[in-house]
Deep mutational scan, measured.
Amino acid sequence: VTTYKLVINGKTLKGETTTKAVDAETAEKAFKQYANDNGVDGVWTYDDATKTFTVTEMV
């Protein structure tokens, strides 16, 4: 189990959260659900070296 981080660069919501998951795919599903629940829709990137997902909403 690995800890993954999500950085949110939203128009109205900004911040970070973490989740523990067995792999990046599982973490991504959890983060996308979290973003969807919070009304964040944007471009996703993932950095495997730092285990960090970033979602950026276009203005």
Rank of each mutant, 00 (worst) to 15 (best):
D23T: 08
T19Q: 09
G10T: 15
V40D: 01
A49I: 14
I8S: 03
K29F: 08
V7W: 06
I8V: 14
A30M: 15
A35E: 01
T19H: 10
V22K: 14
G42E: 01
T17A: 13
T50Y: 08
A30P: 02
K5H: 08
V1W: 11
F53E: 00
K51S: 05
T3C: 07
K51L: 11
V1H: 12
T2E: 15
A27V: 03
V43I: 09
F31D: 00
L13Y: 09
V22Y: 04
G39D: 14
W44Q: 01
D41R: 10
F31V: 03
N38R: 14
M58R: 09
W44T: 01
F53T: 01
T12Y: 14
K5M: 07
E16A: 03
E25N: 09
E16M: 03
T19P: 01
K32Y: 10
V40C: 04
V22I: 08
L6V: 04
T50L: 12
T52N: 02
K11Y: 15
G10N: 10
D37M: 08
D41N: 06
E28F: 12
V7T: 08
N36P: 02
G39N: 15
Y34V: 08
F31I: 02
M58Q: 11
T18C: 06
V59G: 07
Y4Q: 00
M58V: 11
K29S: 13
L6F: 07
Y46E: 00
T50D: 10
K51W: 07
Y46I: 02
D23H: 04
T56A: 06
A21G: 03
G15N: 11
G42Y: 02
E16P: 02
A24N: 08
G39P: 02
A30D: 11
D41E: 05
T52A: 04
T17K: 15
A35C: 05
T50R: 07
G15S: 09
T45Y: 07
T18H: 08
D47S: 07
L6N: 01
T54K: 06
I8G: 02
T56R: 07
T50H: 11
T50V: 09
Y4H: 02
K32T: 06
T45R: 06
V40M: 06
K20F: 11
V22R: 15
T26Q: 09
F31L: 08
Q33D: 10
K11R: 14
Y34I: 12
T17N: 09
G15L: 14
L13V: 14
G15K: 14
T56E: 08
E57P: 03
T50N: 11
K11V: 11
I8P: 01
G15P: 15
T50P: 02
D48G: 10
T26P: 02
K20D: 14
T18K: 11
A30L: 07
F31M: 03
T56L: 05
